[in-house]
């Protein structure tokens, strides 16, 4: 039964291709001629944070998810703990 299901699922990959293309191209068309807004935001946000705290690059995680109508930008920064232990952070 399971293999029968897998057999039928395997067959129609075209609708997946179609949906992936529609999402991708909707995004790519908005940025032809323009620079990528999400990418600019990422860089500027990181620059602002770097101005105030010394952030190590491996402590920053950037996740980007582009969907049909919305994109999400997730920036996760591990900030060194502030307070009376500046030497300990090193």
């Amino acid at each position: 039964m399971k293999s029968l299901l897998a057999f039928f699922n395997r067959r129609s990959s075209a609708p997946v291709a179609r949906e992936r293309l529609q999402i991708l191209l909707a995004h790519e068309r908005t940025l032809t001629g323009k620079t990528d807004l999400v990418a600019i935001l990422k860089e500027e946000i990181l620059a602002v944070i770097a101005k105030h705290i010394a952030v190590e690059s491996d402590k920053v995680q950037v996740k980007l998810d582009r969907q049909d109508s919305i994109s999400t930008l997730e920036i996760d920064i591990q900030m060194p703990s502030q307070g009376p232990r500046p030497a300990a952070a090193r």
């Binding site: 067959r11 129609s12 075209a14 179609r18």
Partner: peptide, 16 residues
Amino acid sequence: RATRGEMLKTEDVIEI
């Protein structure tokens, strides 16, 4: 292959 859903159909490509 297009009829069996293994390949993008002509209408898909035109629409996109």
